[in-house]
Design a protein around this nucleic acid. Structure first.
Length: 842
RNA sequence: GCCCGGAUGGUGAAAUCGGCAGACACAGCGGACUUAAAAUCCGCAGACCAUAAACGGUCGUGGGGGUUCAAGUCCCCCUCCGGGCACCA
């Protein structure tokens, strides 16, 4: 007789996830309707639960497992609470790794990607994740990316997509352009050791800056988003109110427009500073070889510093051009300098330098002996010689500033801007740090940009000019047979069949745009497609999107706080303005989970501390693996992966299994109420209350699971009482039924198995969530801490609901309290009913 | 430099509204069961002091100060760690 056969014969089958999980997975896989969302007419409130879609690398990692365990627990809970839940999954399937793999393995990117998707979909099914696969979205398929192209054309029509030549970030490793958002500390977001170069290229941009103000003000309303993410986006948008002021160049026709946030200090300006790239600086240099050389040197130094990754470390320096500018407020001549710390791409690339009231200007003036002129003083004690630079603008007033002398700084900022405007030499303005989104990528594995260049040109289009394709020409399909190289621009440029086409307007020869779109375009609107994934005539049906949106809960890593989460907010606003949707923001609530750490560092291949989810599933089962991911730390904090902990959860599940199977027979028992029931039912209802509360509030599933463990410990401690019928079978039935239901969001396989064993009807995660009965949950006795002067003396028991007088009397009657208080004067007694008594003595 | 987080036993953590600090687990130790081990079950477990034992005492939530009958929790100052932004005019 075999080992396992004997244990079965004893009626004590052991918990075996290796048998339970594949069995249920097969049943679930066979039932397409199991996790399908219902229609708008379901009569239930809707709940859109979404986890960020993964890049199909081929392997789920623990970060994914954690992310999906959180989302899955929530989705299942919401089903059980009677919601119509949309819980979809998809693949962010374009991107460079597929091209790298193609180079390495000689596999076409499409094949490699689709194989990875199949592998990861299977892993997700093994995890028991409740996705509606009928709505699956794969961004690298033409059914999806044709709508990227469609949106691109819509944006082009509205001037939101445009082409311009500019300095762009170039990653030599990726051999492509990067958006500003993809440059981290001067390096590529995919290659932290690769410094990004600046190149002059003609590229496609999306006009995200048009929505800068709305993207910023909308953050205030996103109360369901972490403050951290909102702050990061605010900083990224970098709105700054100020004034543009034109300084005429003395002895020249040119003018220099400076941007300042402190126009009230303009009477203190003692120089104008230009970025080395500034056009006026270049013009001066044209007739001044010495200056030209100095500017050249400055640019070279900046380039070197950028390549060393430490732009901030170069010392501020500048050169006097020998020319002067006219301050339009007082007609004073101030010297024009070129300085290395002036940024060409912020504001106008030119500033007025006011050493008395700006830290950097003060430092710079000190170095070169430029004038320092105080024009702002504190309102209170304005005559005091406070230390310069004095940079405050609240409770500050102007001095030596002509007709504005005596004005407050804040008022003067408004009035002087208005004056400049009235006199035609300036205006109030708003500047942003946010730049338009460069979306051209010189890579193969991405969405082709639906534009052609008409070679001969036709009316309104010069030779080689841009012509948008008509919608009927979509999708522009990526050619399949492409030689992938990482040199010499987009691989599409070498596919002549693709390249050579005809102009849709004049039918003359034309060549296609060979750049592809940034993959962040794909992920900017994918969650709308889930609501209508099979639509072949539109990106989605507006009625469907309007029913489901906004996303009720979006869950993902904080690393997307700027990139994906700002692009997708932008896309939502564009789609709203196209009349496709009604919502202003994609997600009402956002949750950013912590990282998964091992041995003190984020899990990564390079650190060699990766723990494979497959291995964990093999050793402990999917239920134990996902439950551990929820138990080891609250979801917003970093989680240290300790395999012993997974083993611990596995032991807990085994205990649940043993006890539930042992008492499964109680389901058919007679219905007698017993006095032994009270304590066990009390613990049950306390547990239901706790777990329910955690779901609706802060998602501290670690404490939910802890409270279920306490319940199991209590059940285990009552085994004798249950065996001897001191506890009724009705109570036993209720306890196990609720226990299994509470387990369903965390350990769905085991819950399904046990639900069947105890005779439950239907799918366990569609059964109504148990409701806590406050009456049953109430303790009969309360433990009251008794303190003397705030120090614990003893704990006394009083009947539940005892009033203040009773509680106080019980505390004062305690022998230890009497001994402590004896011989001292009781100053006062503080009673917190149900909690504590504090006797203050002298 | 600026802006967010965070710091609690050997470890992960709990304490949700200012009210018994360390729930629940991991690792550990002791015991039961076993020829033995695994598994399982029972028990111990913040530090220090005291004690034959029991009862006990003192300290304790990064450091310092404050408010309060009462502080991990509130206020002020500081240290360290993680993250974001940064010559942004």
């Amino acid at each position: 007789m075999s080992e396992s056969a004997r244990s079965v014969s004893e009626g004590q089958q052991r918990y075996s996830p290796a048998e339970i999980e594949p069995k249920w997975q097969a049943r679930w896989d066979a039932d397409e309707s199991l996790y399908a969302a219902e229609g708008h007419d379901s009569g239930k409130p809707k709940f859109y639960c979404l986890e960020m879609l993964p890049y199909p690398s081929g392997q789920l990692h623990m970060g994914h497992v954690r992310n999906y365990a959180i989302g899955d627990a929530l989705a299942r809970f919401m089903w059980m609470r009677g919601y119509n839940v949309l819980h979809p999954m998809g693949w962010d399937a374009f991107g460079l790794p597929a091209e790298n793999a193609a180079l390495k393995n000689n596999t076409p990117p499409r094949e490699w990607t689709l194989a990875n998707i199949a592998a990861m979909r299977l892993q997700m099914r093994r995890m028991g994740l409740s996705y509606d696969w009928a709505t699956e979205v794969t961004t690298c398929l033409p059914e999806y990316y044709r709508w990227n192209q469609w949106f691109f054309l819509k944006m082009y029509e509205r001037g939101l997509a445009y082409r311009k030549k500019s300095k762009v970030n170039w990653c030599p490793e990726c051999q492509t352009v990067l958006a500003n958002e993809q440059v981290i500390d001067g390096t590529c977001w995919r290659h932290e050791d690769t410094l990004v170069e600046q190149r002059d290229l003609t590229q496609w941009f999306l006009r995200i800056t048009k929505y800068a103000d709305e993207l910023l003000s909308g953050l205030d309303k996103l109360e369901g988003w972490p403050e951290k993410v909102r702050t990061m986006q605010r900083n990224w948008i970098g709105r700054s109110e100020g004034t543009l002021v034109d300084f005429a160049v003395d002895g020249g026709a040119e003018k220099i427009t400076v941007f300042t946030t402190r126009v009230d200090t303009i009477f203190g300006a003692t120089s104008v500073q230009l970025a080395p790239e500034h056009v006026v600086a270049k013009n001066f240099a044209a007739s001044n070889p010495v200056l030209a050389g100095q500017i050249e040197e400055m640019l070279a130094q900046q380039k070197a510093a950028r390549e060393a990754g430490d732009l901030g470390a170069i010392e501020k320096h500048g050169v006097d051009t020998g020319r002067f500018a006219v301050n339009p407020f007082n007609s004073e001549l101030v010297p024009i300098w070129v300085a290395n710390y002036i940024l060409a791409d912020y504001g106008t690339g030119a500033i007025m330098s006011v050493p008395a009231h700006d830290e950097r200007d003060f430092e710079f003036a000190g170095k070169y002996g430029l004038g320092v002129r105080r024009v702002i003083v504190p309102k209170a004690g304005g005559t005091a010689e406070e230390v310069l630079p004095y940079t405050a603008d609240d409770d500050a007033a102007l001095v030596d500033s002509g007709e504005w002398t005596g004005e407050s700084s804040v008022d003067a900022q408004v009035k002087m801007a208005a004056f400049a405007k009235a006199n035609g030499f300036g205006t109030a303005t708003v500047t942003y740090r946010l730049k338009d989104w460069g979306v051209s990528r010189q890579r193969y594995w991405g969405t082709p940009i639906p534009m052609v260049y008409c070679e001969r040109g036709h009316t309104g289009v010069e030779a080689g000019g841009v012509v948008p394709l008509p919608e009927s020409a979509l999708p522009v399909v990526l050619p399949a047979q492409v030689e992938i190289t990482q040199q010499g621009g987009s691989p599409l440029g070498r596919v002549t069949d693709f390249m050579n086409t005809t102009c849709p307007v004049c039918s003359g020869p034309a060549r296609r745009e060979t750049d592809t779109m940034d993959t962040f375009v794909d992920s900017s609107w994918y969650f709308y497609r889930y609501t209508d994934a099979k639509n072949t005539s539109a990106p989605f049906d507006s009625a469907k999107a309007n029913y489901w949106f906004p996303i009720d809960q979006y869950i993902g890593g904080v690393e997307h706080a700027i990139l994906h989460l700002i692009y997708s907010r932008f896309w939502t606003k564009v789609m709203r303005d196209l009349g496709l949707i009604k919502n202003d923001e994609p997600a009402a609530r956002l949750f950013t989970q912590g990282m998964v750490i091992k041995d003190g560092a984020k899990m990564s291949k390079s650190k060699g501390n990766v723990v494979s989810p497959d291995l964990m599933i093999e050793r402990y089962g999917a239920d134990a693996t996902r439950m551990y991911a929820l138990f080891a730390a609250p979801p917003d904090r970093d989680l240290e992966w300790q395999e012993e902990g997974v083993a611990g959860i596995s032991r807990f599940l085994a205990k649940v299994y043993r006890l539930t199977t042992k008492y499964a027979g109680a389901a058919t028992g007679e219905k007698i109420e017993s006095t032994g029931d009270t304590a066990l039912l009390r613990k049950l209802h306390q547990t239901i209350a706790k777990v329910t509360q955690d779901f609706s509030g802060r998602w501290h599933f670690n404490t939910s699971i802890a409270s279920i463990m306490i319940l199991i410990n209590e059940i285990s401690a009552n085994e004798l009482a249950m065996d001897s019928a001191e506890i009724s079978s009705a109570a036993i039935r209720e306890v196990f039924r609720s226990l299994v239901l509470m387990l369903a969001p965390f350990a769905p396989f085991l819950a399904a198995e046990l639900w069947e064993l105890i005779g439950g009807e239907g799918a366990v995660f569609r059964v109504a969530w148990p409701v806590a009965d406050a009456e049953l949950a109430r303790e009969a006795e309360m433990e009251i801490a008794v303190q003397s002067n705030g120090k614990l003396v003893t704990v006394v028991k009083v009947p539940a609901g005892s009033d203040e007088a009773t509680t106080k009397a019980a505390a004062l009657a305690d022998a230890k309290v009497v001994a402590r208080v004896e011989g001292k004067t009781v100053v006062k007694v503080i009673v917190v009913p149900g909690k504590l008594v504090n006797i203050v003595v002298k």
